[in-house]
Amino acid sequence: MQNRKLWKIGLLILICAMLLVGLQRLKETGREAIAPGPIDAAEQQLAALYSMGQAVTPDPFQLTLKWQGEWSSLLAPEEAAGVLASRLGLPVPEAGTVQGRVVYEAKGQIEGFPAELELTTLEEGKHYAMLRMEAVGDEAAALERLQEAQRMAGESLADEGVQAEWNAAVQGVAWPAAAAVGKTASGKRKLDVTFDKLETKINQLPKLKLKQAEEFADELTASRTYSVDALPIAVQSGGHRVALQLAVHRNSGTGMDEITIGTPLLTVEY
């Protein structure tokens, strides 16, 4: 009798354990099913970046986005560049030299936005393509048009086999600086005060909670890198999964704080 009771208890424990394992696998499958693909993720991240630009600067801001990555192709460099340019609706590329490498470049517009394609050969059968697009952020309609242009460009590159990754940045100016350098009465650097205001404005946006991972600062410039759970495109940096980098440069000549926001990391000058 006692053995039968112990056997029933053991069977019940086994069933509970199997149910827990099944539920965990179901959750993991669900997460995988709803994870956005590269094109959708870039569209989502662009919308978040756009909202940050609107939150931190009162003036229209400059927005730059890139699709870039390696492309395995047996086409000759000139022909390869021509294929990509044609697919993107850009003019015939022209050859130039950058740091001793031949670079094919095509400049034009994609859906009304300035666009620049560059293609460099890394080795025989392997090229590196970079598509750069620019826009001025001033209204919601501009974001929708830019998202459509970005999607078209990303899908076109992917269809040709380019292993393109996405990144983007916003550049603008915020509130005037009362002083170029120095500290507040409490001893805090004025540049850090500006940065704290910037973080507060972004943290007030829906779902965008910044978790600082790294930082750098000198007399007139500061940069901080963050993990942001709501942003799907991220990279590993210093043992952290980061998706956003902010930089503030205090222009002592104009008395303005110049702000740059990059995702997942900054790839433009600041």
Rank of each mutant, 00 (worst) to 15 (best):
G108N: 10
T121C: 05
L88D: 04
K207Y: 06
Q44H: 13
A153Q: 03
P36L: 01
L90P: 06
K107L: 10
D159K: 14
K209Y: 06
K183F: 14
N3P: 04
N167R: 13
T64D: 10
E79V: 14
G22D: 13
P93A: 08
L26K: 02
G37E: 09
Q171C: 00
P206L: 02
A48C: 07
S156I: 00
S72I: 12
A174D: 05
H127D: 06
R224I: 04
T120I: 12
S72K: 15
T260P: 03
G53R: 03
P58S: 11
K201V: 10
D59G: 01
W166K: 02
G255Y: 08
Q245K: 12
L46K: 07
F195H: 11
G137R: 10
L231C: 00
A243Y: 03
E214N: 14
E43P: 01
M133F: 11
P114L: 07
M52Y: 07
Q236M: 13
M1A: 14
A230N: 00
M1P: 09
E78L: 05
Q2E: 15
L49H: 01
E155W: 08
V102H: 06
N167W: 14
E155R: 15
K107E: 13
H240K: 15
E160P: 01
L63D: 04
K5V: 14
A95Y: 07
Q2P: 05
L75F: 09
E94F: 11
E70T: 10
H127K: 06
E43Q: 12
A153H: 05
I202Y: 02
A169W: 02
S51Q: 12
T200W: 08
L46F: 04
G238L: 07
V193R: 11
V242A: 04
L210E: 06
F61I: 00
K27S: 08
D218T: 14
L11V: 11
